[in-house]
Design a protein around this nucleic acid. Sequence first.
DNA 1: AGCTCTTATGAATCATTGA
DNA 2: GTCAATGATTCATAAGAGC
Lengths: 325, 325
Amino acid sequence: MSLVDLKNEPLVQLYLGNNKEEILNVPDNSVDLIVTSPPYSNQRKVTYGGIAEGSYVEWFLPLSAQLLRVLKPTGTFILNIKENTVEKERNTYVIELVLALRRQGWFWTEEFVWIKSNASPGKWPTRFRDAWEHVFQFNKSQKFNMYQDAVKVEPSEAYKKQIANLKKRSQLDAPGYNSTGSGFHVNLHNLVNGDRSLAFPSNVLKFPLPDEEVFKAWEENSNYPDNVLELSVASSARKHSAVFPESLPEWFIKLFTVEGDIVLDPFAGSGTTLKMAKLMSRKCIGFEIVPEYIQVIKDRLLEGRSESLAMRNDKLDVNQRGFFK
Amino acid sequence: MSLVDLKNEPLVQLYLGNNKEEILNVPDNSVDLIVTSPPYSNQRKVTYGGIAEGSYVEWFLPLSAQLLRVLKPTGTFILNIKENTVEKERNTYVIELVLALRRQGWFWTEEFVWIKSNASPGKWPTRFRDAWEHVFQFNKSQKFNMYQDAVKVEPSEAYKKQIANLKKRSQLDAPGYNSTGSGFHVNLHNLVNGDRSLAFPSNVLKFPLPDEEVFKAWEENSNYPDNVLELSVASSARKHSAVFPESLPEWFIKLFTVEGDIVLDPFAGSGTTLKMAKLMSRKCIGFEIVPEYIQVIKDRLLEGRSESLAMRNDKLDVNQRGFFK
DNA sequence: AGCTCTTATGAATCATTGA
DNA sequence: GTCAATGATTCATAAGAGC
C-alpha cells in the first residue's frame, strides 16, 4: 500500500493501490459517505484491465463487503453506474449487482436518475443517444443522515406565485381556509406560514452546464454538449476513465454529510469526488490503482499551489492515518 | 371472452376479460407493437386487486409468454413500470421482472427513462419526490422496425448556434476544415451541410409535444396539455388504475409502427394507448378486465360521436377478428 | 387571440390510529 | 401481535378564468 504525499494536506488521504487491499486499513464504521463511479464493465478495458460483464458482480462484491464494513451506521453509499450494450442488448450486470448488494446486506433506499447534460453524441439504427445513468443509494439501515435543506432549489415561478397568493388570501379569509374541501389540501397552514422561498428537489438529477462552459467545451473539443449527435468522439475527456462531473458528487456530499465528515471514493479516477469533498471541507479518502491518475488527482487537489509534488511509497498502519484516532 | 361493440369501428378491437385468456385468440406473430403500463405492485391494495411484490413476476410471466408469441419478429414490446417502496426501501420486483423476461426469451434492447411532469408532491425524512419511471424496450431479436425520423425534435438553441457558427467558419476556412485533426471533427462535413433543422432525441423522455411541436429543453418549462383527457377521467378512475399520459404511447407508436400496423395494450386501463393508436391510424387491440373501464375507453375512443353505446357479450373465434386475415 | 393569474391535483410516502 | 385505513406532507403543471 502507498499513501500519496500531499504535503500534509490534512483533509485528504490518497492511496495508490488496489482498493480491495487498501480499504482493509480503514476502520469499521468510520466513513460517512461513499460516492463512486466504478469502471463500467468492459468499456474501459484499456485502463482497468476490463471487467467482463459475466464476472462484474463477483468482482465488485468483495469491495462492497468492505464498504459495508467501513461505512457508519448512519452513512450512505452512492453508486453511479450504467450498463453498456453487448450485441445490441442492454447488459444485466447492473441490476444483478443491485440484487447482489441487497443479499450482501445493503438496504436499497432509492434510485436516482442522472440526466447527463454532456452525454456522448451518437445515433444508431436501433438506438438513440444514451443520456442518463443510474445513481443508486444504499444504506446500512432505514435510518441515516440526510441534510435535505442543503440541496434546496429555486421553485418554479408558477409555484412562487401560488404561494404568494395563498399568503395574501389567508390574511383575508378565516384560518384553515381550504380551496377544495376535498380533504387532501385541508391543511394549508404550513404552506402559508412555512418558508417556501426554496423547494426540495426530486430524485431526477440534472446539472446543466453553464452556457459559457458549453462553448468552452466546444473549443476544447472535450465534454461535448449533449445535443450534438453526429460527431464522433475522440476528445481528451475520452482519455480519462469514468469522468463524472463535479456537480454529481457535490450534490450528494451536500445532501449526506456536514463539514468534517469523511467521504470515500474507492475508484478515485481523476479525483472529482476528492476535489469536491476537499472544497467543501469534508475529509476524504481515495484509492486509485493507476499511477498516471494519481498525478491527475494531485494536480486537481492542489490547484493553485505552486510546488511540484513528489510521490513516495509508504508503509502505514491504521494508527498513522490522520483522521482516525 | 367478450368483444365490446364499438359500432363497427374498423380499427379497434376492445375485449372485456382477463388478458391471459383473451390473448389466446390472437394469432402468432401478428402484432407490431405492444405498449402497456401494467398495474404496479402494491401490497396494501391486495384487497383491491393489487399484486403483492413477492408474486409480481410469476403473475406477469404467463402473460408475457403470450405477448412473445403474438408479437411479430420485427415488433417491439414497451413496458412502463415503477417500483414502489416497501418499508422505506425500493422494492426489487421490477428488476427481477427484467431478468425473468430475458430468461423467457425476450431481448432487452433498451431502457428509456420517463421524466414525469406531473409527479406527486411530497417530501419525507429520507426521501424526495419520485419523478421518473422505467420504460423498458424488449424485442424478439436484434432486428426490429424502428422509424427514427418520426420522432425527430427541435434541437436546442445552443446546438443551433453551434451549427450556425460552424457554417460560418467553414466558409472562411478551406474545404474539409478540421480544427484539430483529432478525429473529433471527422464528420464535420455532414454536420455543416446536412439537414440539422431537426435532431434525434435521446433515451430520456420528457413529453412536452402536442403536435410535432418543440421538444423543449429540460431547463425550459413546457406547456404541453398532456393531461387533458386524463383529468376528465381522473375523478372516477383515480382510485383503481393507471392513467398514463398520451404522449408516452404516442411517441412509441410513432417510433415503432407505421399506419395500418397493429398495436396491442393488454392492460387497456382508461384506453390511452388505444386512443392514440386509433388517432394515428394504427389498428389496435385492447384487453381490460374491469367493466367500468370499458365504458371509459369507449367514451374516449368515440369522442365526438353522439350515440350511446351498448356492450354485448360475444363468442368469437379467431376468424371473426377483423384484422387478421 | 394571446396574454397573465388562479386553482386543482397527481400510479407517492410515511406515521399514526383503529380494527 | 398483524393489517388496513386515515391524515399530513409537498410542488410542477394543466386548465380555466380574467383581461
